[in-house]
Write a protein that binds this DNA or RNA. Structure first.
Lengths: 157, 157
DNA sequence: CCGTGGCCCGAATTTCATTCGGCTCAACGC
DNA sequence: GCGTTGAGCCGAATGAAATTCGGGCCACGG
């Protein structure tokens, strides 16, 4: 993971369909070298894959909310079952398993407020293990376009 | 946005580097047709781009946290400035602008707990507009691999 | 019945991915 | 000092893919 690797990762985060030749040219290395580097990044699990970014509006999902939930008992199998089943629901974008007063944050999307409400009644109110949840509407979700490696500095410095 | 378009979006969410030929074959259409469809999805803004998925461990960011913050005054320019500047910080993955008791949720990553603490002291404690924030550690972050269009059903049904 | 436009197709061309033999250089042992 | 070894890089050659484009099919409207 030298600086060439970092640059590859950086550029592929900006444009995941960048051609190998174009990438090589950006870095000032030969296409064959670039290909080998990139393949190694895959094999080492540093690049885990590529995904198209899709407009939530176009997917008929303009309403977003964050649901914080507490479940009991907090046993391994209960936690794992909750994570797995909730992640699979089509309305769910992602699930954060948390330390603190909430056990989970669930990012959900829906067609409109009515569907959001129906979803919560069907999927959260009904579950035995959920002892409480709160829903907060998301006005906007901004994402950092690129995550580069953080330098190994001293936190004091 | 017929079912062929949905299938294209679906497959490119699973594998953003799927070749046009392979995609065409999956859908049972000609490569030229598939290319035209896909280009239209780009032009209409339905597919917004492609991003490599990168291991946070490999980027030296094994620690994740969710920071909920309240800012005052809740004026348009203050809100926008906060969103913009925070999203740009390298430790920040994404920023949710919220309705409810918290104004923002900020997903942050750091090398370790010490760096997380230093980051919060530097970037949150110092800001005038932040009147309070709480930090919760994220044990795990699961993501739904695919977001398909939600059907236009009745929420009661 | 006869355009017209939307959508699709397949062949041709250009560009790209991938392979592979060879080069350089630094580290190592003798 | 000197040969060996291995890692990493390069560029030409080959095969595959992206892209273009002329044309076919079909539903629709006059």
């Amino acid at each position: 993971m030298d600086e060439v690797d970092s640059a590859i990762v950086h550029h592929l985060q900006v444009d995941g369909r960048l051609s190998n030749r174009a990438l090589a040219e950006k870095l000032g290395i030969a296409p064959s070298t670039c290909l080998e580097r990139t393949r190694l990044l895959h094999r080492r699990g540093i690049i885990q894959g590529y995904k198209a970014q899709v407009s939530l509006r176009a997917l008929n999902r303009p309403v977003q909310a964050m649901v914080s939930a507490q479940i009991r008992p907090l046993r391994r199998n209960v936690v794992a079952a909750f994570e797995q089943s909730v992640t699979r629901l089509p309305e769910v974008v992602s699930v954060y398993t948390m330390a603190g007063s909430d056990d989970f944050l669930v990012h959900v999307t829906a067609q409109d407020i009515d569907h959001l409400h129906a979803f919560l009644l069907d999927q959260f109110t009904n579950r035995r293990e959920i002892v409480g949840f709160r829903t907060a509407i998301i006005y906007q979700h901004l994402t950092n376009p690129v995550l580069d490696p953080l330098p190994p500095t001293d936190p004091q410095g």
